[in-house]
Design a binder for these strands. Structure first.
Lengths: 356, 356
DNA sequence: GGAAGTCTTGTAACCGGTATCAGATACCGG
DNA sequence: CCGGTATCTGATACCGGTTACAAGACTTCC
């Protein structure tokens, strides 16, 4: 039991208090080598009496490992990244590792911040568009395992991503099935590898259907404001049949912007998103569901394997996605109840059915 | 420029490579003591040649500090916690500290996980209902600065929270102004101190208005499922005029559940939430906005002050909240445009206006 | 020319653990 | 009663930095 456990209690204090050497204390605490029950008890008594907690620093230094992993994500703070990070933390925790987070916020110093982080962890997950491949390769070459998430793997590092191409096809075909022929793709495809894949999958799907795709994607961002801005442009000209957005945030902003401009969705324009964030359910947004938490968890697992050194060739995992039909694409066919098992198809959905 | 920078390069390697002592290398790198330009150059050359990066571990051990802070949050993964954590990370990053995250997931081992985390950081933020006061006091007594967020401060630790009582009054009065007289409060108030304050503020507001408040809050959780479940109970009996929910997630679930049960919101029942998460905007939910990122940022600042030792008496900050009127409370009065400056009042809102 | 002072730099003692190696002790059979 | 072996434990060299202290080189001034 103990008086107070001020800090500054070291293994040497415990040792002298128990009348043994520091080696013995270490042995008792780690259970590496058998120790006489009597000494063991003396040591344990001293430990609890002094309120001793071994310093993680000293231990890490001696063991040559941090027992911590890092995760790096961009400035964007949307629901997507948060979910990925939480999934990552959960799995890493189960594997006995702490998690250090670093958001680059698009800062110029990002590469240095990542390098610095790399020095504090046993392994690192790098998300999307945060730092260049150079930095990643440099770190990997230092011998620190790296897993990239939602971005192409530079050299010999592992990667995890969600499927984009096939779902782009399914989504596009669904819209074509609704009778849409004139399309716009909204969202800055240079900001994230995912967006780029979605855009190119979308184009190919249109071409395959004999429809000329737009020459270029529109937009300079991937956030709600982007959609809001785009709405005015669209409303000013001739409306397309459908706007495929690079992610849900853009799509939600767009829908709101169109509403303000007096354009009906999906009555006059169909709108779709990507990711299936929570708000998408409540806005009745047709989208592609991404397994965000699972992405994080898989990254944590790959990293664990590599840190333990069991791994050989780089592994690349692609997690499946799921088309989620709601109302914003124009519900001409009866709803498939399986398309939305989650609570909350809701309000918006219902209003649409009744009002349009 | 360097060949490859394999790891394992230590300060001693640099020293011998430059023909100086390790002390000199350290001096050059930290700039603590003047060094002859010639030696300085030799050292710097060796550093870049070998690709030397000082070990964070060695440095921390010698300096006696981690240059890292921790943040502990509950199992809940909702949008609220994510935003707080991101706000915290951003500020901590600016203050030159890394951030370790720990989600307790309601695990039994939580206290030990937190204690362990406390050993890896210079300071710690503890959110809501994660570990008991005992644990927090124990850590604080070890000399590790602790800031609690959205929970009462146990002893001499700093705290940050959002205002709940006054906003509960405003919200309740608003509903009374709509003509509501029979109220239900939904959400498990034992799960979070915030919920408890909201519930008690709500009760007092009703009493003050001469309306008998419900004896007890309803519900056993704080997530969407909770609201969904509650909807059936409510629909089965006599409907109240309004349901005040402890947070947005419960409110959103409830609205969806009521919709499924054929009950109109706000036509038959008014529903309100708390927090103003992103989905609330798109669902037209009347709620109380909490400055989530600011909460995290303030906690980071308080912690920084305390770590630097500049602080004296414990400080307790209460951040203001804002009532956000949307549609779910029954929009009898014309909308105040200022009540919703954010994009996305949207779809749902509009449908309501048109349909009801 | 020598004493006193300033600059640089090296030596070594930390920080708090882990783990190797060898010495001490107890136990065994002959 | 003694050598040999198993067990337990202590001394100590790490891990990779920082920094107090002291020594050496070089001025500067009388």
């Amino acid at each position: 039991m103990a008086v107070a456990n001020r800090d500054g209690v070291t293994i040497r204090d415990v040792a002298s208090h128990a009348g043994v050497s520091i080696a013995t204390v270490s042995r008792v605490l780690r259970g590496t080598t058998p120790v006489t029950p009597a000494t063991r008890d003396r040591v344990l008594a001293a430990v609890s009496e002094l309120g001793f907690r071994p310093s993680a620093l000293g231990r890490s230094l001696a063991e040559g490992r941090h027992a911590a992993n890092g995760i790096v994500f961009p400035d964007l703070s949307g629901p997507y990244y948060a979910e990925v990070v939480l999934g990552y933390e959960e799995m890493a925790g189960e594997l006995g590792r702490s998690v250090l987070i670093l958001s680059t916020h698009g800062r110029d110093a990002a590469p240095d911040m990542v390098r610095e982080l790399a020095g504090r962890v046993d392994g690192l997950v790098v998300l999307g568009r945060t730092v260049s491949d150079d930095v990643i390769e440099e770190i990997a070459q230092r011998g620190i395992p790296v897993v990239v998430l939602a971005r192409p793997a530079p050299s010999a590092v592992d990667s995890v991503k969600a499927e984009n191409d096939e779902s782009a096809h399914r989504l596009t075909e669904h819209l074509i099935g609704h009778g849409c022929r004139r399309f716009v793709f909204l969202g800055d495809v240079n900001r994230s590898p995912d967006s780029m894949e979605r855009w190119s999958g979308f184009r190919v799907a249109l071409e395959r259907a004999g429809i000329a795709p737009p020459d270029e994607p529109r937009g300079v961002g991937l956030r709600e404001e982007e959609g809001l801005r785009a709405a005015d442009d669209l409303a000013a000209g001739e409306l397309p049949d459908a706007v495929v957005c690079a992610n849900d945030e853009v799509a939600l902003g767009l829908i709101e912007g169109l509403r303000r401009a007096g354009v009906q969705v999906p009555g006059q324009v169909a709108v779709t998103g990507w990711d299936d964030v929570m708000a998408a359910r409540y806005a009745g947004l047709t989208t592609v569901r991404q397994p965000m938490r699972a992405l994080g968890a898989h990254a944590a697992r790959l990293l664990d394997v590599r840190i333990r050194g069991d791994a050989e060739a780089p592994r690349h995992e692609v997690l499946p996605t799921e088309l989620v039909i709601r109302d914003s694409c124009g519900r001409h066919e009866p709803a498939h109840p399986d398309n939305d098992k989650n609570p909350g198809r809701p309000l918006a959905a219902r209003r649409l059915e009744r009002c349009l």
